[in-house]
Write a protein that binds this DNA or RNA. Sequence first.
DNA 1: ATTATTATCTTAGTGGCTAAGATACTTATT
DNA 2: AATAAGTATCTTAGCCACTAAGATAATAAT
Lengths: 151, 151
Amino acid sequence: MEDDIVQQVRRMSQLYAYTSIQMHETVARKAGLSGTDHKYLGFLMQKGQMTAGELASLTGLTTGAVTGMIDRFEKKKLVKRKFSEDDRRKVIIEPNTKNIMALFEPLYKEFRTQSEALLAGFSKKEIKVLESYFAKAIEIMQSTTKKLEQP
Amino acid sequence: MEDDIVQQVRRMSQLYAYTSIQMHETVARKAGLSGTDHKYLGFLMQKGQMTAGELASLTGLTTGAVTGMIDRFEKKKLVKRKFSEDDRRKVIIEPNTKNIMALFEPLYKEFRTQSEALLAGFSKKEIKVLESYFAKAIEIMQSTTKKLEQP
DNA sequence: ATTATTATCTTAGTGGCTAAGATACTTATT
DNA sequence: AATAAGTATCTTAGCCACTAAGATAATAAT
């Protein structure tokens, strides 16, 4: 029946998620970071600079934990603290893209080329299928997370 | 160009992985577990019973950490320790499927039905595309992880 | 039998996390 | 302008999971 196929893909997507966590953590350790630090550094890279408070609310960590994380990043020259001009209580965290890239690129390089090769093997139509799946699956996961986070 | 599309899907797959981590951790916290505990409990469920040592090498944790983890699981009645018949040094960890399901099912229920609905919306051909992508992507990630773990 | 190996547990020490409070700056009120 | 309230980050104490190393107990090898 169709159900079996659906179940199988569902299980595969689960394994996919799990495997990516594993890789992510392995890369982190290789780079001398914890899994969470790696994750949140990715945040910073994606969003560009942000304040410590923004990072705290985005990560769900307490401000104290964020302070410690920024300390660790700063010690490794991966970010720089800067006081905001218009509000000097605010601490702007500026990722040092060059250093961060230098740290992770060698670790991800092969993975990246392989992933690109994999995707290049799909037709335009097939890529659209993947795209549509990802978009909707992401939405589902985000709404699930949101609902759970409420009381 | 084609490259742009590939890059975009690659970025989406990254976001997909990240979002699934977030959901996974949120579910874990709701269940009163840490993210890692949730992950490794999933291991146990999938593989059925295994020994403490197998769990240690599979997770990469030290045997001490595994002992602590089993203690936490046991306290919550999620697993049971049993000494192996043929080698009484070995500790077999038996997941209590019923209790584990009871803990997680309510948290995953809606997600599960939504995921199934999403997949049911794809044609057989399209599902094959997803399947093939997942299978190959998983392989790439596993080989990346393996290579990094070696030297 | 004795020795080596294997499987798990125990213990001491480390590090990141939370919660609560301290510090420093900004905004609102009078 | 002076004081109070609010906001952003940092600091500190205490907790908990982790590692590393060694202890304990059972099995395998000579």
